[in-house]
């Protein structure tokens, strides 16, 4: 994926660039908002990662100006500030995700996948399928190998989220934000228990095991045989 990464701290910039490149992405970097905006407008990127506090032109301002010309490129914000209002502001300006610093690199990777995927999602899908697991949004039913599974409302939402992002890693924080709307991550280990309970219903009596733990990062749902 071709990524633009705008960050003024040279150490972070170098490490993240290296990390992303090692994961197969092509990364352009910019050290301030003005250069960042210029690059964003003159090239086509699959994703733009923006630091909020930038010299010349701050992240919010850059995004506002970018969105005047381009509403399709996904944007992910990184911020050391972490104020709730900043997050809301970023999302309102047209960002797709907002990650407070410091963050785990694996979290960044997971979110990059999720954000770029979001844009391709077809909202017309009423039935999500992974292997023999079926989630019917219209009928609000879950079936596996022909058997109907009894899920709670939250389990349904969680499974839907995992299936929509099938094959991608979703971090605990992402799950918390998406399903419960909690932007604090104090209880992220509670998610483990939720996943465990969901796994019991969806995977225990079936094969292959679709719900996988990605150590240190989060969870993913995918068909290992596909």
């Amino acid at each position: 994926m071709k990524i633009l990464y705008v960050e003024d701290d040279p150490t972070a910039r170098e490490y993240i660039r290296r990390g992303l490149t090692e994961h197969g992405h092509v990364v352009d970097v910019a050290e301030d908002g003005a250069i960042g905006l210029e690059l964003a407008l003159s090239h086509s990127y699959a994703l733009i990662i923006l630091d909020v506090g930038l010299p010349e032109l701050d992240g919010f301002e850059l995004l506002a100006r970018l969105r005047e010309h381009d509403t399709s490129t996904p944007v992910l914000f990184l911020s050391a500030r972490g104020e709730v209002q900043d997050r809301v502001r970023g999302l309102n300006l047209g960002a797709d995700d907002y990650l407070p610093k410091p963050f785990a690199f694996a979290e960044l990777l997971a979110r990059i996948q999720a954000v770029s995927r979001r844009r391709l999602d077809d909202p017309e899908d009423f039935v999500l399928r992974v292997a023999d697991l079926e989630l019917d949004l219209k009928a609000h039913l879950v079936r596996r190998a022909g058997r109907t599974l009894e899920l709670t409302a939250k389990q349904f939402s969680l499974l839907e989220y995992l299936m929509r992002n099938a094959g991608q890693v979703l971090s605990r924080t992402m799950i918390m934000e998406h399903i419960w709307g909690y932007s604090f991550d104090t209880y992220s280990n509670v998610i483990d228990v939720h996943i465990a309970h969901l796994r019991k219903k969806v995977d225990r009596d079936f094969s292959p095991k679709l719900l996988r733990t990605v150590k240190g990062v989060g969870y993913t749902l995918r068909d290992p045989d596909a």
Partner: peptide, 25 residues
Amino acid sequence: SDRVPVPIRPVLQNVFDFFGPVAEE
């Protein structure tokens, strides 16, 4: 200026849902 109306019922329900599995464990 940052205050918004927050219905209490969904908040408590959410918390209840969230900690359900942990309590069970």
